[in-house]
């Protein structure tokens, strides 16, 4: 006599699977780990106290933002778009002494960015983005890749191919110095801003 085969009802399996699926759909958060990366300067104590570096006025590109989020570029009010600011900075970096009031060369050129304690983070990011865009556009152009590709490759420098393009973009000289370093100085915010 054949023994009855035990069976598990599987009609509800799809329902159970759907239930689990909906749970994971709802709890999934797409990881957002992207942003603007900077390197902070060394701690104030590590610097020599009487260090007095002479920087020529022409090699300094000054951006100031007050507590009302008004922007001052090279001492003049700036109301244009971030793209216009990017173009201005690119012109300043790649001056190579052509304009006597602009930078000598990219190595000496410094972008100085000063905010107020009352400046909103939104404005801070907007201007920082414009400054970084200027450098990244120059690098990407030198390396012959798109800006997006440049951003991808510069976050993974262990790959020798990426490293090569990275050095090409920043114009690394044989002696190890870099012709176009990102000289971005973010000053400590002022206390009271008007």
């Amino acid at each position: 006599m054949p023994r009855p085969v035990p069976e598990i009802p599987n009609a509800s399996m799809a329902d159970i699977a759907f239930l689990l699926l909906v749970f994971f759909l709802v709890t999934t958060t797409v990881a957002n780990d992207k942003g603007l990366s900077i390197l902070l300067p060394p701690p104030p104590e590590a610097l020599p106290p009487d260090m007095d570096i002479k920087i020529q006025e022409r090699n300094l590109f000054k951006i100031q933002v007050n507590s009302f989020d008004n922007v001052l570029v090279e001492g003049e009010p700036f109301t244009g778009s971030p793209d216009e600011l990017t173009e201005k900075i690119k012109k300043f970096i790649l001056n190579y002494g052509a304009d006597p009031s602009s930078s000598d060369n990219p190595e000496k050129a410094i972008v100085s960015y000063k905010t107020d304690r009352g400046t909103s983070h939104k404005k801070f990011i907007e201007i920082l983005d414009a400054i970084q865009a200027a450098y990244y556009q120059i690098y990407a152009e030198n390396a012959g890749v798109s800006v997006k590709k440049w951003l991808d490759l510069s976050s993974d420098l262990n790959d020798p191919e990426n490293r090569k393009l990275y050095d090409l973009g920043r114009k690394k000289r044989p002696d190890g110095t870099i012709e176009i370093p990102m000289n971005l100085s973010i000053a400590e915010p002022t206390k009271v801003g008007g």
Binding site: D33, L40, P42, D116, T119, S120, H121, F124, L128, E188
Partner: peptide
């Protein structure tokens, strides 16, 4: 506002954690 962020940055410099990413 920028003030509180600057305070944190100063502390991060003292703590020698200088790699910073502003998430956007």
């Amino acid at each position: 506002k920028r003030g509180i962020i600057a305070d944190v940055e100063t502390e991060l410099r003292k703590a020698n954690a200088r790699l910073l990413l502003y998430s956007t």
